[in-house]
């Protein structure tokens, strides 16, 4: 195996380092520019939290779909066309007035890509990864999510290939809103369980 001293000088700025690596692989025909662009564009535009928001809004407005989603997350999510890497086996957790789930990956930054896209900075931050498994109530409160002592808190640490999506509680006062309007309210952070969805 490669000794760490063999790896490249970390004083090289990452942009230059990426460019160097890219040019070495391109000139040997091991990779191609089109594939690189496709990967980047896919996660910039097509795969992101707007997918998960559609799943949540549908579950809020279609009781049968919600039941299916909680029973077999992978299949129910796939009916909306969302599947792929880091979404092989999806489990959906329902947050209610009594139970609050929050998801982390303490060993790396495992995250359900097909429904939420690539993880945001806070999810990858050492403080979040270290603290949420030890003091989840303090973490949530720091981000403005105050939970009463009667609310059961459940933390999920993604240590296998199971990926979790939180189904947030539908906010009061949204009864007349359409599925599309509801989807626009759903945030990435609520689908990881660190915040709640707010009514407009």
């Amino acid at each position: 195996m490669t000794e760490v001293e063999d790896t490249v000088d970390p004083t090289i700025p990452p942009a230059l380092r990426a460019e160097a690596l890219e040019s070495l692989l391109l000139e040997r025909g091991l990779i191609d520019t089109k594939t690189i662009e496709t990967f980047i564009r896919t996660y910039e535009t097509a795969v992101g939290p707007m997918n998960g928001a559609k799943v949540v809004a549908k579950a809020w407005t279609d009781p049968e779909y919600k039941q299916q989603l909680l029973a077999d997350g992978t299949a129910a999510i796939a009916t909306l066309g969302f599947k792929g890497p880091q979404g092989e086996h999806m489990v959906v957790l329902e947050n209610t007035a009594d139970v609050h789930h929050v998801v982390v990956c303490t060993l790396c930054s495992c995250y359900p890509w097909p429904v939420l896209g690539l993880p945001p900075s806070w999810y990858k931050d050492p403080a979040y990864r270290a603290r949420v498994v030890k003091e989840p109530r303090a973490v949530l409160a720091e981000w403005g999510t105050e939970l009463g002592p009667d609310v059961e808190v459940r933390v999920l640490d993604s240590s296998s290939e199971v990926r979790y999506l939180v189904l947030p509680e539908r906010p009061a006062g949204t009864e007349s809103m359409s599925e599309e309007e509801l989807a626009a309210l759903v945030t990435r952070d609520a689908m990881v369980g660190v915040t709640k969805v707010q009514a407009p």
Partner: peptide, 9 residues
Amino acid sequence: EAFTLTLDL
């Protein structure tokens, strides 16, 4: 703090 933690092992 009062909570539970789940790992997939």
